[in-house]
């Protein structure tokens, strides 16, 4: 599973403001949150357009990571420069995941367009199990080491430390998300996607090919997932066939937190979730007087989610869907 970067559990009293630790946790949270955001976008695009929780999306991310490991490691062993091997690994992961996303939709979900609401959900769960076990057959049960693609450079700012990898993750996710926003709001495909999300029937009457739009959502979401997968691998330096599950779950939580179906919501939800988790893990000991330790990190995501939905039932940025009589 994921290995979290945790600061040592705080035993000291709270009387001193620990700005450096606070900043450190914000930075860690921002990095983790950027990854959540990228994965959350994949969930939210598919949900926004066809109302499906694509449970297998976390597995797509996992396969992205594992493909990169295989390709990059092989090339590095063959004597290629690390940068070339890394880029080759990344591009093959993106291509494989795009094909996988397209195939998933085409083979598993498309035949179920008119099926009862829960049918595609079970299919998605089934595909998630299939992909996990295919990955286990191909890559084995053990943890795999992710090759070092970026030099280990450390920076320090106001007492907080961060690495080149962390900077890279935040910058690349930011650029990718900006690109996605341009795609959705400035291109014909993006307009078709928004129209289909609003009302599939009307959109198809206006000449939008809904099959193409749905395929596009899967393909783009999977590409983002592959990118996120590479980032996870670079950041944590290990990968495993089960890594997609919790990551997918958190990312989906982030998407719901922001208001599912809403791109900006997924991004904000992802980053927010990352930061909340990091801060929570850092301070839970102090907050509860040592009663709860940082191993409760994983519950923050869900507690925040439940609390937010209690007060904002459509998520932070979701549109209010009123009942119509």
């Amino acid at each position: 599973m994921k290995r979290h970067r945790k600061v040592p559990f705080l035993h000291v009293a709270v009387d001193l403001p620990k700005m450096d630790i606070f900043l450190q946790q914000i930075i860690n949270g921002l990095v983790q949150g950027s990854i959540y955001a990228l994965v959350a976008l994949g969930y939210t695009m598919v949900y926004g357009i066809m109302g499906l929780i694509n449970f297998a999306h976390g597995e797509v991310v996992m396969i992205g990571t594992l493909v990169t490991i295989t390709v990059a490691t092989t090339l590095i062993k063959a004597g290629m420069p690390v940068a070339v091997a890394g880029l080759a690994g990344l591009s093959s992961a993106v291509l494989v995941c795009m094909a996988l996303g397209w195939g998933l939709e085409r083979i598993a979900y498309r035949p179920l367009r008119n099926a009862p609401r829960l049918t595609p959900l079970i299919t998605a769960i089934g595909m998630s199990i299939v992909l996990q076990n295919v990955a286990m057959i191909v890559w084995g049960r053990n943890y795999l080491t992710f090759p070092h693609l970026l030099p280990k450079v450390n920076f320090e700012f106001a007492g907080a430390h961060f690495t080149a990898i962390q900077v890279m993750i935040v910058v690349v996710s930011g650029l990718t998300m900006a690109g996605l926003v341009l795609l959705v709001y400035r291109t014909k495909l993006g307009m078709a996607m928004r129209a289909t999300a609003q009302n599939p029937q009307v959109a198809s009457l206006m000449g939008v090919n809904s099959n193409r739009v749905i395929s596009a959502a899967f393909v783009i979401g999977s590409a983002l997932g592959a990118l996120a997968g590479v980032m996870v691998g670079t950041y944590y330096e290990i990968a495993h066939y089960q890594m997609g599950f919790m990551l997918g779950l958190k990312a989906f939580t982030a998407a719901v937190l922001g208001g599912i179906g809403n791109l900006a919501g997924a991004m904000a939800g992802g980053i927010l979730l990352g930061i909340i988790e990091a801060l929570g893990a850092g301070y839970i000991g102090d907050l509860t007087g040592g009663f709860l330790g940082s191993h409760y990190q994983d519950i923050f995501a869900f507690i925040v989610l439940i609390v937010v939905l209690m007060f904002k039932p459509s998520g932070l940025f979701g549109e209010k869907t009123g009942d119509r009589a």
Partner: peptide, 27 residues
């Protein structure tokens, strides 16, 4: 507090609840 949520939101909230219970049992 959560039953007024619409279907898929309820799904993720219940899922989260399940995880919370498991994490507490673990810790």
């Amino acid at each position: 507090p959560t039953l007024k949520l619409r279907g898929d939101y309820l799904a993720i909230v219940t899922l989260g609840f399940g995880e919370i219970v498991r994490i507490f049992l673990n810790n």
